[in-house]
Design a protein around this nucleic acid. Structure first.
Lengths: 195, 195
DNA sequence: CTCCAAAATTGACTACGGTCATATTTACAT
DNA sequence: ATGTAAATATGACCGTAGTCAATTTTGGAG
């Protein structure tokens, strides 16, 4: 019933977010500086940290939004009819997650509900991904995937392998062709019933 | 043939490492400060960074060593005869990797050969883990696991699921009983042929 | 309208990782 | 021994995330 949330707060927060988005568009996530954010948002340093516990929380929010629109896009597609189709459909997500080492690190760190408390935007998005996978792997659906384990478990495995594939991709100068191949190999072994 | 490596270098490096190990034993990885390391090692700040590219490289080394003695211990065990036995054998590794959020983050970041160049101690250890798994999953061996995919692929999957299980464990106040259960569930679905 | 307590904002300040020009030490040739 | 070039060490300095006591703004009670 109480309404302790002020109009001013929303405005300030929106300015901070807008400034950050602008900066990221210009110089990328890696070069984001809180000083630059507050300068453009025309607020003091302390104000930033009154709105976000730390810089990573802002990145959680921004990257979470990007992930959301990406997953929303996926949700409109029909359930994939093969591992190859699945991997192809996931490519936009893969591209986003592997855009830069820093983005990937933030995603990995926050995908598991980061802090002990508080589920952030990225963690929420991973829940959303899971819902989507559960639909795609519905045992009642017409797909070639295994039916001996729950679709939820299948989805969690897909997430684990996506992260693994991207992580290995950041290594030995593998390019994304190899990432796709590797993920396909993982998911064939994970999702297909042995012939 | 050239011998450009000085005795002094080794001494200094050893002192830095020893100081860091001492500090970590006292206050944990999270509270490690380079300033404290150089103070105890009786060297200047700059010397630290002449020996390690950054603080994380030192952690890579130290955590890598811990992982190595852990995996060496695992290597003396006989191949596990069930998923439950496998998970039980892996527990020391799981405990080490999930000791703290920071340790886990460093491991995840460096497990995939961190930088584009240079394979560090943690990445090397993950290779060693893989060798061990390949032995355990030898298709010629007497074990209940699937034989339709390469043991290497099986091992990579185990690594992916271990990371997934730990990551989720850092979330929703799940304790390690749940981590064990979750990993068992993953590995049953990953390693066992459908009945 | 006036006053007040809570909410929001401020910016100087701290902590700490990392840099770099300079100084010192080492190894070796002569 | 002496000179000297390369390797190593130094510490003042910098950049940036994050803190906090003090200040300003807000919305509402009387």
């Amino acid at each position: 019933m109480n309404k302790p949330i002020q109009q001013r707060t929303l405005k300030t927060r929106a300015r901070l977010v807008a400034a950050a988005q602008e900066i990221i568009k210009e110089v990328g996530h890696e070069a984001l500086r809180t000083e630059e954010v507050v300068k453009r948002a025309k607020v003091a340093k302390g104000t930033f940290f009154a709105h976000f516990p730390d810089k990573d929380a802002l990145l959680d929010l921004l990257i979470g939004e990007e992930l959301n629109s990406c997953v929303d896009g996926l949700a409109e597609l029909p359930p994939p009819a093969s591992v190859e189709a699945l991997v192809a459909q996931l490519m936009p997500l893969l591209d986003l997650m592997s855009r830069s080492r820093m983005v990937f690190d933030v995603i990995v760190r926050y995908s598991g509900a980061a802090a002990i408390e508080e589920v952030g935007p990225i963690a929420e998005n991973f829940g959303k991904q899971l819902d989507l996978f559960i639909r795609w792997f519905d045992p009642l659906g017409n797909h070639p995937f295994r039916r001996d384990i729950s679709p939820e478990l299948m989805g969690e495995g897909v997430q684990a392998f996506v992260i693994q594939a991207i992580a290995l991709n950041f290594c030995n100068l593998h390019n994304d062709v190899d990432m796709t191949k590797r993920l396909t190999q993982y998911l064939r072994a994970w999702l297909l019933p042995p012939t």
